[in-house]
């Protein structure tokens, strides 16, 4: 698992969502952390602001845990970095 992204998710959940750090782990479900579907979309906006990776609705369909979200964001990040140079110009 991408530890940098896990740290980013954890920081946002602690700072913006007021969730105690000890409750946050890759296997923790968003439901258990008290986040509903609107909160998860809100979380993805905060992640995008920090690291520029935006998970879309369809990419969140199978996301249940913090680890799921980190992996989905990581997959998107790898995809983006493998695009031909200049595609973001």
């Amino acid at each position: 698992m991408n530890q940098d992204l896990l740290t980013t998710f954890t920081e946002i959940l602690v700072e913006d969502f007021d969730i105690p750090a000890e409750e946050i782990a890759p296997e923790a479900t968003f439901e258990a952390l008290g986040l509903d579907s609107l909160d998860v979309v809100d979380l993805t906006l905060a992640v995008e602001e920090r690291v520029g990776i935006k998970l879309e609705d369809e990419e969140l369909e199978d996301v249940r845990t913090v680890g799921d979200a980190v992996n989905a964001a990581d997959a998107k990040n790898v995809e983006r970095q493998s695009e031909p140079a200049g595609s973001e110009a």
């Binding site: 913006d16 969502f17 007021d18 008290g34 909160d39």
Partner: peptide
């Protein structure tokens, strides 16, 4: 708000 009304109150 979070202390008096529960976690996440301020944001939600």
């Amino acid at each position: 708000p979070d202390a008096e009304l529960g976690r996440g109150t301020k944001r939600r």
